[in-house]
Design a protein around this nucleic acid. Structure first.
Lengths: 245, 245
DNA sequence: TCGTGAACCAATCTCCGATTGGGCTGGACC
DNA sequence: GGTCCAGCCCAATCGGAGATTGGTTCACGA
């Protein structure tokens, strides 16, 4: 395990470092000793060692970060997308347009891939949303319904995107949900639209499912433009604007 | 500003607390004094105060968290979707299917909303991708191209979703990109497909843009199934599988 | 019986020192 | 006169100790 330093020293620090890495069986993503320590162990100057390490880093064989250390393998990506940043930039109109882009295609894939159990789950969400006694409860089951369709795509990535979209949607329409004592009317337009979506999915009608979802979201968009979110409540801003006019 | 405690004490801690909140002009999302401190200031027991605070929290007027404190307004959402979690669950096939669901619709909206400047930007990306001397460079300009289309939707939320998708895609296909000395062939199929997409966007042909994007991604999917990522390299797994067979 | 105060608990924050990669400089050495 | 190096400083990060804070339990007593 011991390297013959006098032997290798002339051949260049880079080769010596490669030999060290081969000899020290570090685990994947393992951490190397700190620069100063490693330089002393290899019997080279820190500047020389840094040059060799920089070469290996450029090759992508290791990555380094101040305060953390030097690690084997590929630099991990920064990993998180900030939902709050999206929320700050967007608005309800964009949210509906994004849903119109994504959810019909999700419904299409759900019609292809949904299991009978998942279809039952959608139906269950619809039943519960009809029994909802407050708008908040209704919104919860509506969310579950749309997520069930996302699950039925059998595509975890699409489901993740849908979850992100839903998180933004909830955040954007926060505080818009008033009148907790009221409940959706029995003939609330969404009920029929939801039914049509599930029916198309059950019949494995991919285009039909996409179209039904699209129609549903278009009516949501229409309500948005008429200023009545969820069919009965309007934006506080809209009310304030009218009052000041 | 000073409350007459003997006066209000009989009316219930809840009312006393509301009066305190009205009197102490805290900023939005402002922080209340800690329980113990506030209880002493109001001259009530901590248990009583906690009941009143719980009521206000249930009303959504404030939110609390261990170790942090009590704050006015709505509880902020946990805000970040973990890309690494998605990466762990998904695979290249899911990535392509997700792109097939999202990007044609993005191209459709881009055809409607793109500015001439944005179209020029797309063309610039294509030119640079043709001049790329390594696959890594090509992939970079390909990314820029698809993102330029996302920007052209004028929808920050869709752009955010596309960015998330791209981050996952890059992470999933990481290390798949070999042969840095090679470069895309001059007749690489993506070049023509990209051209068709921009042309449709420029002609404001929404359906055509969506169709062109769909065709492009279908060919990407086909290459994936043939095991040659980026037209020349295959998955290490595939090679290993064949070797062991 | 009920509320009270005190103690305990776990999550979180804050502060400080140690560690680490990155960078600069004076001086030794040939 | 140029090259290399040890030493030092810098900023980012980590890790631990102690304090803070909402949540919970429990014995005591009016």
């Amino acid at each position: 395990m011991e390297l013959d330093r006098t032997e290798v020293s002339g051949v260049g620090v880079l080769m010596q470092l490669r030999a060290y890495l081969a000899q020290a069986q570090l685990p994947e993503n393992g951490r190397l000793p700190p620069e100063r320590e490693l330089a002393a162990e290899l019997g080279v100057s820190r500047a020389e060692l840094r040059k060799a390490l920089a070469t290996l880093a450029a090759e992508g064989r290791l990555w380094r970060h101040v305060g953390k250390g030097t690690f084997l393998g590929n630099r991990p990506l920064d990993a998180t997308t900030d939902v709050t940043a999206m929320v700050r930039r967007t608005n309800p109109a964009e949210v509906v347009k994004a849903r119109l882009a994504l959810e019909p295609e999700i419904a299409r894939l759900a019609a292809l891939n949904a299991t009978p159990g998942q279809i039952m789950q959608m139906r269950d969400c619809l039943a519960r949303s009809r029994e909802a006694e407050t708008w908040r409860q209704y919104e919860m089951w509506d969310n579950h319904f749309h997520r069930a369709i996302g699950e039925a795509t059998q595509n975890s990535l699409l489901l993740g995107l849908l979850d992100t979209l839903s998180a933004v949607r909830r955040a954007v329409s926060w505080g818009r949900l008033r009148g907790e004592h009221l409940r959706p009317a029995a003939d609330h337009h969404s009920f029929a639209a939801h039914e049509a979506i599930v029916a198309a999915i059950e019949e494995r009608d991919m285009s039909g499912a996409a179209a039904a979802m699209r129609l549903h979201l278009l009516s949501v968009e229409r309500n948005l433009h008429e200023g009545q979110l969820f069919g009965e409540e309007e934006f506080p801003q809209a009310r304030a604007r009218r009052r000041s006019a």
